[in-house]
Design a protein around this nucleic acid. Structure first.
Lengths: 190, 190
DNA sequence: CGACTTAAGGCGAAGGAGTTGCTTCAAGGG
DNA sequence: CCCTTGAAGCAACTCCTTCGCCTTAAGTCG
């Protein structure tokens, strides 16, 4: 049984992928999003444009891949000792990052170049994973906790819907309010 | 005081706009989305490509405009005599339309070619308007009704978030469940 | 360990999309 | 009725994109 038989991810392919992704990140930082073209990225990455077209299809799909990578959370949610504080802190940070100009740009790119929805799915999977960590911690403490789907529907979804579809600013207090409403719905109302 | 002084919407400009939109609809029906190009659309519409590039910027923004037009609700929500049934019926129909293959394609297009978020904003405005009609009707009946923002956050947002970001099917029972949970949340929860 | 199979990348040419400056047209105002 | 001005037509040019063919190298098998 070979290590990784399918799609040959090892060696050259992996190097090309990393080189191209790095070229996108560098050029975006240097010249801005609008200046990005496939031939430019290819030249910086040391590959030919046809390689990028064959592997990614077009510029949008490449940018979508890079955007999803950047939307991957880098750390586990902080442990503040209780479900409520964990969820509040996480939701606030999540909203802040997503609502920031670069965050909005990454979300836009991730969605725009995503024919089959797999990149968008990856974004929600990241959020679901973080939520899962927080809920598992709560369960370990013996706290009563909502289902992960409830958190996704009542906290993540409203934030992301407003971010993507509705104009106007979003601040931390909105995130806190969603957490509050979700958790108070667990037990007899207050 | 002139009828509509700014941006000269009358006469030729309006004719070009309608002609181009019609060309997009026709060509999409005839040859499919993938075959659409600006020069092709321009030829069908009887304009020069540069006209389209100057007015819309690129193909994506044009498709975004057309998609938003198609996402506009054609009728007011049906009146079933009570808030719960009105909301259920509307949410089911909304989800069904949005989750259908053409619905998903329009949403994708609307988001993809929308630099400033105004088209996405229009989509949420359509939903908010329909919700507003339903809630106003409930208020007329003297029913206790949630705020429109609550409906957007608890019913529309989860559906659209799942639609855009999460893999897997969505059916009418999911929409009904969201309505149920939202309305039962008005009074002491279960 | 060495030959084979086959994805995947490099290269170059051809075609077509996208861009731009200038001109022409017509809608709205004086 | 003429003037102003935003918008469309035209044409030429740039360069993105595609495609066929060849070469490279990863993984397999004798």
């Amino acid at each position: 049984m070979s290590p990784r038989p399918m799609t040959r991810p090892g060696g050259r392919s992996a190097r090309v992928q990393e080189s191209v992704h790095a070229a996108v990140r560098d050029l975006e930082a240097e010249q801005g999003r609008a200046a990005l073209t496939v031939p430019l990225i290819a030249a910086r990455a040391g590959v030919t444009p046809s390689t990028i077209y064959r592997r990614w299809g077009d510029l949008q799909e490449l940018l979508s891949d890079v955007a999803v990578e950047r939307l991957r959370p880098e750390t586990e949610p902080a442990d503040h000792g209780a479900l409520r504080t964990d969820l509040e802190a996480w939701a606030e940070q999540f909203l802040e990052e997503m609502a920031s100009p670069p965050g909005r740009a990454y979300i836009r790119d991730a969605l725009a170049g995503d024919p089959d929805g797999s990149n968008a799915g990856q974004c929600s999977a990241y959020a679901a994973e973080q939520v899962g960590v927080i809920l598992a911690r709560a369960a370990d403490r013996g706290e009563q906790a909502p289902d992960a789907e409830v958190v996704m529907d009542h906290i993540v979804a409203p934030m992301m819907y407003r971010l993507v579809f509705r104009p106007g600013p979003l601040d931390a207090s909105y995130a806190r309010g969603l957490v509050e409403a979700t958790l108070s719905g667990l037990m007899p109302p207050g």
